[in-house]
Design a binder for these strands. Sequence first.
DNA 1: TGTTTATATTGCAATATTACGATATAGTTT
DNA 2: AAACTATATCGTAATATTGCAATATAAACA
Lengths: 110, 110
Amino acid sequence: MGATKTENFTDEQNELAILTKALGHPARIAIIEYLIKVESCICGDIVNELPLSQPTISQHLKELKNAGLIKGNFEGNAICYCLNEVGFDKIKGFFQHVNTYLDNRKNGCC
Amino acid sequence: MGATKTENFTDEQNELAILTKALGHPARIAIIEYLIKVESCICGDIVNELPLSQPTISQHLKELKNAGLIKGNFEGNAICYCLNEVGFDKIKGFFQHVNTYLDNRKNGCC
DNA sequence: TGTTTATATTGCAATATTACGATATAGTTT
DNA sequence: AAACTATATCGTAATATTGCAATATAAACA
């Protein structure tokens, strides 16, 4: 064993886990925050911004892109990256659910 | 190499990554959703609910607890688990930031 | 005290992630 | 076409995660 048993969970649970897992690394949080700050930029800008090598940044961008949290379009010989609302919209529902629950929870808990 | 270079990122980035990483597994998403559904329950209830062994559930509960997303209190010889608002409140700010940005983003992006 | 019930911990194998040097790919420019 | 710029991929080492059987711990109860 060692691999996650995805077949035992719903598609929604697996998809949400893929999205949150993609955000589960400080470099990828930093990339998202940087993209919010500058709206859009090319990969090289992020390589200059963060203390990680170009291949490592490229790998993190790939994971964020695969999860649907960012998108990239060719712009000359560079690739312009920005946030992808699709992924964040999927996460939104879950946290709204959680927050609504917590806001309405009367007595602490157990 | 192989370990995340946490020293290169801010405390906020690392803390947020720990929280989202803790949610980055379908079993842990399922546990959170189950706790919302039943408000609170003991570990054994989750073992009955999910198709994973008792040690594996115990390990996932530990990770959620360490991240600050759930809390557990002794109740007789069992432990009663429920959501911990502390962790979710920390995540909330980040997603509010992202959603506000996305809502105000005029022209798509690059 | 001995037994039962509930949960945690240990130990380990399988797999996944992280990071980066070296190299490949692809568009741009001269 | 050759050189340059930007990004991706390959290969690999170090580390982390996942899952479970076996075992330990701890409270409740007979």
